[in-house]
Computed example of a mutant assay.
Amino acid sequence: MKKKHNEQPVINERIKYSKVRLIDSLGSQMGIYSSEQACKIALEQGLDLVIISDKSDPPVCRIVDYGKYKFTQEKKAKEAKKKQQNINLKEVKMRYKIEEHDYKVRLNQALRFLQSGDKVKVTVVFRGREIQHINLALELLNKMAKDLSEIAEVQKSPSRDGRYMTMILSNQKT
């Protein structure tokens, strides 16, 4: 009886185990009962019998108000989803002959991406014979790494890839 994602939990008469470990609505253990007996006890209290864990032997069931139980489970799932953080890879492209103002614009872009929790791929593009000036591109990438050193760390040091030279920066907090 595997429970699939987003599937309703097994409750009341649908519990097909011969014996279950029963926990009352206050959270204290009542002992091991047959599933029919446990279901009867729950219904006498006007509540439902829900399988909490089918991994143990015998499975653990709890007497709860199913509506409230379902609500709290959904609330926990929403909270867990909120805490997940998606990290994207953003790219900032430039040429090695970039002017100072344009460099500052790219620096601010990279800073904004890093502050929002994304990784930044800084790329220097070469055209034609510019490929001879790899040392200037390396200086530019190192300058950017130094300028962003307070918030970022170099995750992948500058390396040449065809007509591009790239470096990856990530936020120091992540």
Rank of each mutant, 00 (worst) to 15 (best):
E44W: 14
Q45H: 07
L47V: 04
D48P: 01
I51E: 00
P59Y: 04
V60A: 05
R62G: 09
V64A: 03
D65H: 01
D65Y: 00
G67V: 06
Y69Q: 02
Y69V: 03
F71S: 12
F71Q: 12
F71E: 10
F71Y: 14
T72K: 09
T72R: 11
T72H: 07
E74P: 13
K75Q: 12
K76H: 09
K76E: 07
E79M: 01
E79Y: 04
A80N: 01
A80P: 03
A80W: 03
K83A: 10
K83V: 03
K83R: 15
Q84D: 09
I87E: 00
K90P: 11
K90G: 08
K93T: 12
K93H: 12
K93Q: 10
M94R: 09
K97Q: 11
E99K: 15
E99S: 13
E100F: 04
E100P: 12
Y103I: 12
K104L: 10
L107C: 11
L107Q: 15
N108A: 09
N108M: 09
R112Y: 11
F113C: 07
S116I: 10
D118L: 03
V120N: 00
V120T: 00
V124T: 07
F126Q: 00
R127H: 11
R127K: 13
R129D: 06
E130M: 07
E130Q: 09
I131P: 00
H133C: 09
I134H: 12
L136H: 11
L136R: 14
L136M: 13
A137Q: 09
A137M: 07
A137G: 05
L140V: 01
L140P: 00
L141W: 01
N142Y: 01
N142I: 04
